[in-house]
Design a protein around this nucleic acid. Structure first.
Lengths: 228, 228
DNA sequence: CGCGCGCTTGACTAACTTCAAAGATGGTGG
DNA sequence: CCACCATCTTTGAAGTTAGTCAAGCGCGCG
């Protein structure tokens, strides 16, 4: 059984269904609106999920990194298009047998539900980022997110281009460049190559990437407002 | 059975669980991070779901209008806070019995799943709006959305304040004001009161509110890239 | 009737975009 | 193996958009 499916319950059975493919940079995995006949799993590289406006502006909803599954839809078609953000290796799992497997295995079904839940919460974070944060804060929060997801200590790899990052953060590629150069000059990190970041001052980066506050006080007055 | 639950399967049984409450403008329904013990349904008025950054900036993720259900969580706590955007009437449905009902009634379970799906798709639309659109386009697309949701012909009611709309669109209240005044002057609509819009030129409004393109061409080359 | 709050408008400022051009980088073919 | 070319990144300068600050208006509530 391949390493990249070990994390999932029923990984062995899923692996038996999967086929592999190498995609060149920019290759399309599926278009927006295309029939959703397969799940996909990133084995190596990176995939971007995006949508376009009618006049060609692009919004990258999400980046998928090795270990991430995408293309699991409740509907009949894919809601977003998916392309390789760099040369990548993907596993394709046919939808029907995979769904049958999930129905038979409650643990797998539960894992997939958790995955959807996490993706939804992640979507809320991106909404907050786009609605509230400045360019510097968006870039910093993106880098913190990438650092957490790649989990490689103080090194962050950026498998996608500046344009992709810009479309993800609602900024121009030039603004992404300038902002990163500025953070770099400020000592937050070093940048030996455009796609390699060495974090020097994680605290400074996290301070810029203002996370939301999570008030946890129980709402004591709440019940008084309701009739029995 | 109240009219506002007739649309749902098992509405009668749900209605038996519900209690009603009148909330004044600004009242909190539940806080972010509070235990998710109830579902809620908007009977009249409007509710906003929002999150805060650590320094107090706010992002309104969603507005709920009469007939909308919210507070259905997979997790143990609410992911966002909910407040009345104006004086409102809500129905509160305790979570456990409601979930038991959903388990017993596949039609209800399916309806709730569709609701979650629709909400997710809606989230993608908001992402595109924040990442790609100008202030004018954001306001126009918000008005088109409200027109579709309230479904009252050419009249749109805006039960929320300019600040709420701004926090929803990633704009300042002043910018919302100015943009609406400008659209009004341009003849797109009339505004007899700040919270009443009479659409005059729906085509112009929809043209500004650039929806995404939905390519539907099947991906014929796709299978050639995969090994058997 | 007066007060307060939210809406509206104006003038100015800051932030981001746009346009333009100069380095890097990596892949291809000679 | 190296040189060339296309592409992406980076930087600079000017332009636009939306934000900030401030004041006036209007409505609803007390």
């Amino acid at each position: 059984m391949p390493a990249w499916l070990r994390a999932l319950p029923s990984g062995t059975e899923l692996a038996a269904l999967a086929t592999l493919a190498t995609l060149p940079d920019g290759a399309e995995v599926h278009a927006e609106g295309a029939p959703a006949r397969h799940w996909h799993l990133v084995v190596a590289g990176a995939v971007r999920l995006s949508r376009l406006t009618s006049d060609g502006r692009r919004c990258v909803a999400e980046f998928l990194l090795p270990g991430d599954i995408f293309g699991i839809e409740d509907g009949v078609v894919h809601a977003v298009s998916a392309e390789a953000a760099c040369a990548s290796l993907l596993a394709r799992i046919p939808r029907r047998p995979a769904e049958a497997l999930a129905e038979a295995d409650p643990a797998l079904a539960s894992a997939l539900r958790d995955l959807t839940l996490a993706r939804f919460a992640h979507g809320q974070d991106r909404l907050l980022r786009l609605a509230c944060l400045t360019a510097t804060e968006r870039v910093a929060s993106f880098l913190v997110e990438m650092a957490e997801r790649s989990g490689a200590g103080d090194e962050i790899r950026l498998p996608m281009g500046r344009g992709d990052i810009g479309d993800h953060l609602g900024l121009r590629p030039e603004t992404v460049c300038r902002t990163m150069a500025q953070l770099c000059r400020g000592g937050a990190f070093a940048m030996p190559a455009p796609n390699r970041i060495l974090v020097r001052d994680r605290a400074a980066l996290e301070a810029l990437a203002l996370r939301d506050r999570r008030p946890s006080a129980p709402d004591r007055d709440w019940d008084r407002r309701w009739a029995a």
